[in-house]
Amino acid sequence: MAISRSEVEHVAKLARLKFSQEEIEEFTVQLSKIIDYVNKLNELDTENVEPTAHIVPIYNVFREDEVKPSMDRDKILMNALYKENGCFKVPKIIE
């Protein structure tokens, strides 16, 4: 297996996903297959190759520092299920 069960569990936690034991099994098998497949890239020597993060080489795209009206709060909040006093509401957080 290219990836272990415990690694799958760790990655799930990082990604904030919850799986049943069966799903963990299934993902371990499937991800292992996919990782084996993508490991094909290791056939290539890329030692002296620069990575390409942006395919079109442009830079310095800015906006001017100008204030424009924000959106109506009703619209900002309209898709939230839990809200109170103009705020989004989440479970109590103890800091």
């Binding site: 990655v11 799930a12 990604a15 996903l17 991800l31 990782i35 993508v38 990575p51 390409t52 993060a53």
Partner: peptide, 28 residues
């Protein structure tokens, strides 16, 4: 499945082996 694969590829210790490698292959 893709979130899992992507999270794995970016996670500590794997970034260079996967994400960075893929960006280099992108150059090729």
């Amino acid at each position: 499945r893709r979130i899992m694969l992507g999270t794995y590829a970016l996670s500590s210790g794997y970034y260079d082996a996967y994400y960075k490698k893929a960006l280099k292959v992108r150059t090729l």
